[in-house]
Nucleic acid binder design. Sequence first.
DNA 1: AAAAAATAGTTGTATAATACAATCATATAC
DNA 2: GTATATGATTGTATTATACAACTATTTTTT
Lengths: 140, 140
Amino acid sequence: MFEESLEMIELELSILIRRSTSISSNRKIGNLDRAAYLLLRRIASKGAAGVKVLAGEFKLDVSTISRQAAALEQKGYLYRIPDPLDGRAYTLQITELGTMELNEFKQARLVKIKEMLKDWPDEERKVFGQLLKKFNQTFI
Amino acid sequence: MFEESLEMIELELSILIRRSTSISSNRKIGNLDRAAYLLLRRIASKGAAGVKVLAGEFKLDVSTISRQAAALEQKGYLYRIPDPLDGRAYTLQITELGTMELNEFKQARLVKIKEMLKDWPDEERKVFGQLLKKFNQTFI
DNA sequence: AAAAAATAGTTGTATAATACAATCATATAC
DNA sequence: GTATATGATTGTATTATACAACTATTTTTT
């Protein structure tokens, strides 16, 4: 039972990752990239932060955050607030347009997931969300 | 409750995909690419098949399967069986070396997942696997 | 105070996994 | 026999990421 569950999880995770990252099943929604979505969302929910801090939270290279931020800024979704204490640094803050776009993107995703889970019992949706969260917290 | 679960699922899926596809958390194990793993595994479990069939099953472009197959063949994990009825086609079959490598890769992954889930109750592991499988089946 | 070292962020380059387009050889339809 | 379709491969591009190199600024050391 124990090994069987692990094997199922291992296989289904592989399939999930593959499916979710496939371009044909993960077409861009609106003007937001999938990659930059979490960045914008983080800033919206926890407030402005610098490139280094964000890279640390996401466990991504600073260059990746820098590029995502630049792209979002170019689109008008983020703006920079110079750090008054450090001439090299700034914090990234979301714009009103960014907030709107974020909500749109998020809604579109929710609609999609809602459709996928329309036949699920409420309890299973709840448990799935909780287990996903728990699983994500095992990543260090 | 309903919308809350959807939002949690939506967010946690985003995080999971990001974490799982990040290079730093998904370093290659052995000589098998993550991408080609499912291909090799499919052939091992269901038998030889052609490029077109496999592309259809995986909902990937034939060029992607073709490239993955070529890479696996180059490594000695797959070999080609010409289709006696069609001079253009062949089926891909796994080699003994491929089988061994597949099992090694799979074991390495299982060890990793086992470590991640070491504090989980058995029941949750079981449910997680089942819900993942169920979720994967909603992708069309 | 000046020099050396560290650091915040950007840019260059490369990698991995994928798709669309173009091509070639073979098979099928007319 | 000719035209069309098809299985697979190759060319090119895209996306998201990391490592390396760089610049300007800050901090530490001398």
